[in-house]
Amino acid sequence: MKETDYKVTLSLIVNGETRNVRVLPQRLLSDVLREDLGLTGTHVGCEHGVCGACTVLVDGAPARSCLTFAVQMEGHEITTVESVARDGELSPLQQALHEEHGLQCGFCTPGIVMTFEAYLKENPTPSTTEIRDVLSGNLCRCTGYQNIVAAILKAAATLREKGVE
């Protein structure tokens, strides 16, 4: 009864590319992204769904990759932080986080980026209260959140301007 007997071959769509892996069913999506696919931008902070560092997008909606098994993800599109900047250009959200000093150690940052890349599509005109409500699902130990909130407000404004253009 060797564990390898239980391994399953998966075909995952990650950042628009099809990637094949052979993994145990209990293997967490976070581990497969990081260790099997080398996408180490997704960070693991608690493995019980509280800290939000491992948040990725599944079919465009934020999800904790530590509460998701890779084996569940066949047929779904996974988006990670590595795909957010296009052609070396930071997204408006990433740029705003930089300009507003919305990150320090940066460990929680990918989860915040992914959460709000999705949220700002759903709500392009968020209030400070709404931003703080959504941000409450991502723990940050360094910043005290103030600059993150400012950055998200700024990013929302930039995105709205871009949308108008």
């Binding site: 769904g49 939000g52 599944v58 934020p62 999800a63 904790r64 509460l67 699902g137």
Partner: peptide, 9 residues
């Protein structure tokens, strides 16, 4: 319930 990402799942 929980947080935004939690509510998506």
């Amino acid at each position: 319930i929980g947080h935004y990402a939690i509510r998506q799942r």
